[in-house]
Design a protein around this nucleic acid. Structure first.
Lengths: 239, 239
DNA sequence: AAAAAATTTCAACGAATGATGAAATTTGCC
DNA sequence: GGCAAATTTCATCATTCGTTGAAATTTTTT
């Protein structure tokens, strides 16, 4: 059976090399940056932030860990790029809520904060972790990079709340920064936990629990800051 | 200079052993379990959850990492013991809030949740991380162990809210479980972030920012669930 | 066809981690 | 004094991690 191989080896032939040929060099489907970022998100979704090692991402992408260093400058640079792609749109949409030409009420626009978070961050626990400033081993500098992006967006929401105070929709003793913090931060917690806790603790199916909790949260929040808390919030009953 | 050492080594003398004598065996001040748990908390406070390696804790305690395996069964067992000591009292106090003989109003008792969290968890970010269910490398099983302890306490708060609904203090359309989740979870976020964010974003000194945010949060929360939201909350102005 | 550039993998380094078994030292008991 | 139990450290193992430099292969350019 293996006598042929043994004879070949005797003549100095690198048998290993023939049986498992090396595969270096460009593939038919080149590994581009977006593919690696997709892989990172997939690892996030499957193994959480703690699973976000370079090796795990490369495994997911079906390539060698070195590819990460070819396309980005290290792990840090890769997450920087991931942020640009993932959190960039969130920040843009949040900033747009401040637009004075927006015809919607302040309440509905604040509800928009929750909708935007839900839409962009509902799927990836890892992305929420990043946004929340959690730390990834080997990419500790990411934290500051995120706050630099997110703070202006939160500032826009604060401005929106100030606008609501001026218009008389929101109680004047509301602290805009705190209220912004409460609104946005709680939505992150809801997205993280309610899909797990809802079925387990309250027996609500996961897909129903999330919207229920979000609506419950916004009703509580708005009632907590509104000048006229009894006014109905019709936009909550849509979709 | 080192010729003597070389001559000694030639005769088979273990020079290293003479220059740095071994120090095995019991110390004058024995390392007991509590000391190790204190060290773990200190590491938490200084380096956060990610710094909670066995080696870091042993370094803090001034002993060898092996001591952890002598006193506890591995890293997991050690955090189990830390929970027993640290989170046990929190849970006990939370359960006591449900006591029907407590003369305080429902509002004041819900404010008690925030006070209890503040008192027991304000100092250690790591403890909050544990309570929040964050994962520690090498002690992944801790998560379940925590939820098992915390869920009954959160159930007690939910009962308290139900009691408030029965008494007519809390709006009947309030979902007790969600409200409990909002109240407790937000306090964790406040303890984590406001001391950092307050000075940086709003220019408020760290020690003032925390109580301000907690009071702002509870006012918002209570206004969000109360039947009579305009009723004053005098206990908020104490201390 | 030859040379240069681009893409991919390989092999390895140094560091950190959780864990273990054995050795060394002290303490307490008979 | 001798002996067993308790306490502490040492040396080491197997993993995993981020990172790097060189080799191999394909593609593009000359």
């Amino acid at each position: 059976m293996s006598s042929i191989i043994q004879r070949l080896m005797k003549f100095g032939v690198d048998v290993n090399r023939i049986l498992t040929p090396r595969t270096r060099g460009p593939k038919a489907t080149k590994v581009h940056q977006g593919h690696l970022l997709d892989a990172a998100l997939a690892v996030f979704a499957r193994e959480g932030l703690r699973g976000a090692s370079i090796r795990a991402i490369a495994r997911e992408a079906g390539c060698d860990p070195s590819m990460l260093y070819y396309h980005f400058q290290g792990k840090e640079g890769m997450f920087e790029a991931l942020l640009e792609r993932s959190i960039g749109p969130v920040v843009t949409e949040l900033l747009a809520l401040k637009d004075p030409k927006d015809p919607r009420s302040v309440a509905e626009r604040l509800w928009g904060v929750i909708c935007i978070y839900h839409r962009h961050l509902g799927e990836s626990e890892g992305l929420r972790g990043l946004l929340r400033g959690e730390i990834i081993r080997g990419a500790e500098g990411i934290r500051e990079s995120i706050t630099k992006r997110v703070f202006p967006a939160l500032g826009a929401i604060s401005d929106l709340i100030r606008f609501g105070i001026e218009r008389g929709d929101i109680r004047p003793d509301t602290a805009p920064l705190f209220a912004t913090f409460f609104l946005a931060r709680m939505e992150l917690e809801i997205l993280d936990l309610i899909p797990v806790l809802g079925p387990r603790v309250a027996g609500i199916p996961a897909d129903q629990a999330l919207p229920m909790a979000e609506r419950a949260w916004f009703r509580l929040f708005w009632r907590g800051i509104a000048t006229r808390p009894e006014e109905p919030l019709p936009f909550l009953n849509e979709s």
